[in-house]
Design a protein around this nucleic acid. Structure first.
Length: 385
DNA sequence: AAAGCGTGGGC
DNA sequence: TGCCCAAGCTT
C-alpha cells in the first residue's frame, strides 16, 4: 500500500486520488520514485505467485543458454523464440560447438527469426569467448560482457542477473512500459534523455538479492499484466502507486515512436534454373538487409538483369515474369518481382565461391530469408521448368 | 543522433 | 487492411 512509502515520496500519494490530479499536475510530471524496498517486496510477492518459471531457458540455467535466449529475445516475442531456442540448443549445446560451426549453419537455424546480424554476432562472440576467455563467459561485469558483439547494456544485465544472480539492472521494452506508466514518464523511450531517466529508475529499484527473480518479475509484469493494450490494472500490485493509472491514461504510456513515411523499394529477383531444376543462389553481403544469407541475384531493372545474364551466364534464356509480391519491413516496403530464366545447357557449371546451385527438393543447411525460402518452396512443387 | 535491421501477431 | 509493436544493438 501507499502507506509503505518513504517520506520523501509523500507527494506521490496524491496521484492516487484522481479527483485531485489536476491540482498537483505540475508535481506529477516528475514524481519521486517509490521506496525501493517497498517496490521490491511487492514485486517479488507478485512474482512468487504469478511469475513465469517454466520457460525453456529458465531450466538448466547457464551463461551460455541464458545468452542465446537473450539474443533471440531481442525485439522478438517469447512464443516465437521457443521453438528456435530448442532447435538451436539441440544442435549447439555449448559455446565450443557453436564456435566451431560454419556461419552458414548458424544462419540456417536463424532462418525466419529475423535481424540476422544477431546470428552473425552470436557466432563471432562464441569464437571470442572460446579463444579469448578460455570458453568461460565474462559474467563478472556488464562492461566485459558488453564488449562481446551483439551484447548491449540491457542484454549484459539480463545475462548477469539470470545466470549468476548478481545485481544488474535491465531495461527492455517490458521494463520501459512498466516504469513509464508507474511514473508517468513522458516522451518516446527511444529518446536518449528519456532512456537515461528510465535507466536511473531501473538502477534505483534493482536489488542486491533475488536479482534473477527481480529482473524476471519486471519482464513478466510487462508481458502478462502491464501489457501494451488493455493492461490488467486491477491485478497489479502497484495499482495504488501508478501515475498513469491514477490519471486513467495507461494507454498513453510509453509514448509511441514518431512515425515516418515508409519508402517503397522495387527489385527484380532472378530465379535462374539449370537443367536439373536447381536454382542459382548468391551469398549476400555480410551487412545490410539479409546480410550473410543466401538469396537469388537481385537487380534494380531489367536492363541490369539482362546484362548480368549475358556476362555471367551465357546461354541462358529469360522467361516469364511472375506477379510482383510485397514484403513489408519495419522501415520500408519491398516490392519483389520474380523473373524466371533457365540455362539451355545441362550441367557443367563452374563452382564459384559465393554462388551455389540449390535443389529446392533437397534443401541445404544455409540461411535463407523468409520470402526467399517461400519462393524456393513454391518452386519445388511447381512444373515451371 | 538517428537510421538500419525481420518477422509474425493483434486489432 | 494497415498500423504498431515485440526480452535492442550497431554504425
Amino acid at each position: 500500500m501507499a502507506g509503505a512509502l518513504l517520506k520523501q515520496s509523500v507527494g506521490t500519494f496524491r496521484v492516487s486520488y484522481p479527483g485531485e490530479s489536476q491540482s498537483v499536475s505540475t508535481f506529477i510530471k516528475a514524481p519521486q520514485p517509490l521506496d525501493a524496498e517497498y517496490f521490491r517486496t511487492r514485486l517479488l510477492g507478485w512474482f512468487d505467485q504469478y511469475g513465469r518459471t517454466h520457460l525453456p531457458w529458465q531450466q538448466d540455467r547457464s551463461p551460455y543458454r541464458v545468452w542465446v535466449s537473450e539474443i533471440m529475445l531481442q525485439q522478438t516475442q517469447v512464443t516465437t523464440v521457443i521453438s528456435y531456442f530448442e532447435r538451436f540448443m539441440q544442435r549447439f549445446p555449448d559455446v565450443e560447438t557453436l564456435a566451431a560451426a560454419e556461419q552458414d549453419e548458424v544462419l540456417h537455424l536463424w532462418t525466419g527469426l529475423g535481424y540476422y546480424a544477431r546470428a552473425r554476432n552470436l557466432h563471432r562472440a562464441a569464437q571470442c569467448v572460446v579463444s579469448e576467455h578460455d570458453g568461460v563467459f565474462p559474467v563478472e561485469s556488464v562492461t566485459a560482457l558488453s564488449a562481446l558483439p551483439g551484447i548491449g547494456r540491457s542484454t549484459a544485465g539480463a545475462i548477469i542477473a539470470q545466470a549468476t544472480g548478481q545485481r544488474a539492472p535491465i531495461l527492455d521494452g517490458n521494463v520501459k512500459r512498466v516504469l513509464t506508466r508507474l511514473h508517468g514518464v513522458e516522451g518516446w523511450p527511444g529518446k536518449p534523455e528519456v532512456e537515461k531517466r528510465l535507466w536511473q529508475l531501473a538502477e534505483h529499484y534493482t536489488p542486491q538479492w533475488r536479482c534473477a527473480d527481480f529482473t524476471q518479475a519486471m519482464m513478466d509484469m510487462g508481458a502478462t499484466l502491464c501489457t501494451r493494450r488493455r493492461p490488467s490494472c486491477l491485478l497489479c500490485p502497484f495499482e495504488a502507486d501508478c501515475v498513469a493509472h491514477a490519471r486513467g491514461e495507461e494507454h498513453r504510456f510509453p509514448a509511441s515512436k514518431p512515425k515516418k513515411e515508409k519508402p517503397v523499394r522495387q527489385t527484380l529477383m532472378l530465379m535462374l534454373r539449370d537443367g536439373n531444376g536447381h536454382v542459382l543462389l548468391e551469398q549476400r553481403p555480410s551487412s545490410g538487409l539479409w546480410g550473410g544469407l543466401w538469396g537469388m541475384p537481385q537487380f534494380d531493372d531489367h536492363e541490369a538483369l539482362r546484362a548480368w545474364l549475358a556476362r555471367e551466364m551465357p546461354g541462358s534464356i529469360v522467361g516469364e515474369q511472375w506477379p510482383c509480391f510485397t514484403h513489408v519491413f519495419t522501415h520500408f516496403r519491398l516490392e519483389i518481382t520474380p523473373v524466371q530464366a533457365h540455362l539451355s545447357r545441362r550441367g557443367g557449371h563452374p563452382a564459384v565461391s559465393g554462388r551455389r546451385w540449390y535443389d529446392p527438393d533437397q534443401p541445404d543447411s544455409i540461411g535463407l530469408a523468409a520470402p526467399v525460402k517461400a519462393l524456393l518452396e513454391s518452386l519445388s512443387s511447381s512444373s515451371l521448368l
